[in-house]
């Protein structure tokens, strides 16, 4: 049974989430991937204000395909999170609570998740059509010139995801693999 979770996340809600839990997320999330992260970090380095208040928020690593007329968004599945590893601890130190993507995180990111009591969810890679159904509103809020890589604000309803790294140090990728590995 999937747990219903509201966005933005609260510290209280995170206490209840463990690696392996299926969740349905409802609320606001922000979309940013490679180029947007680079700019966010440059903005922080210059001491300027970010295009959105990152405190307590969740970032979805994603670059959608174009929406057809009448659609909210096109295909909208996760991209590989590892490419954002060099930026993620810095963002968690400035208040980022949640990340959604797919794939392995570095040890530094996992340590930061524990330290800052944040969370990493995975969405199903390649399931962009299915995921797009849970996105009710999408608007570009910054870096429009980056096209598919612009920062978007999404309103989601029952967005399907799975907890990979929780505040307790749990890691579904390690635990799941250990369970089904056959040692010869």
């Amino acid at each position: 049974m999937a747990k219903k979770v509201s966005l933005p996340l609260t510290d209280e809600a995170l206490k209840d989430l463990r690696a392996g839990d299926n969740v349905l997320l409802t609320g606001i999330m922000y979309v940013a991937r490679d180029s947007a992260h680079k700019r966010i970090i440059e903005t922080l380095d210059q001491g300027k204000t970010l295009p959105f208040d990152i405190n307590g928020q969740t970032i979805y690593y994603m670059g959608p395909s174009p929406a057809r007329p009448g659609q909210v968004i096109g295909s909208a599945g996760p991209t590989t999170s590892g490419r954002m590893d060099s930026y993620a601890p810095r963002l968690m130190s400035t208040g980022l609570k949640g990340m959604i993507g797919k794939g392995n995180r570095s040890q530094a990111v996992k340590d930061a998740i524990k330290k800052y009591k944040a969370i990493y969810f995975a969405a199903i890679g390649g399931a962009g059509a299915l995921i797009s159904k849970s996105i009710k509103k999408a608007e570009v809020i910054a870096y429009e010139d980056l096209g598919a890589e612009a920062i978007r604000r999404l309103e989601v309803e029952n967005f399907p995801a799975t907890v990979i790294n929780d505040i307790y140090g749990g890691d579904l990728y390690e635990e799941g693999k250990a369970k089904y590995q056959v040692k010869v």
Partner: peptide
Amino acid sequence: VARDVLGRILENVDISSKEKIPLCQDT
């Protein structure tokens, strides 16, 4: 857990072909 994932993948394939939404956003 894996069967559930594969089930959702099949659901995605179905939505994609019916509504012409790309299977994956990375085309």
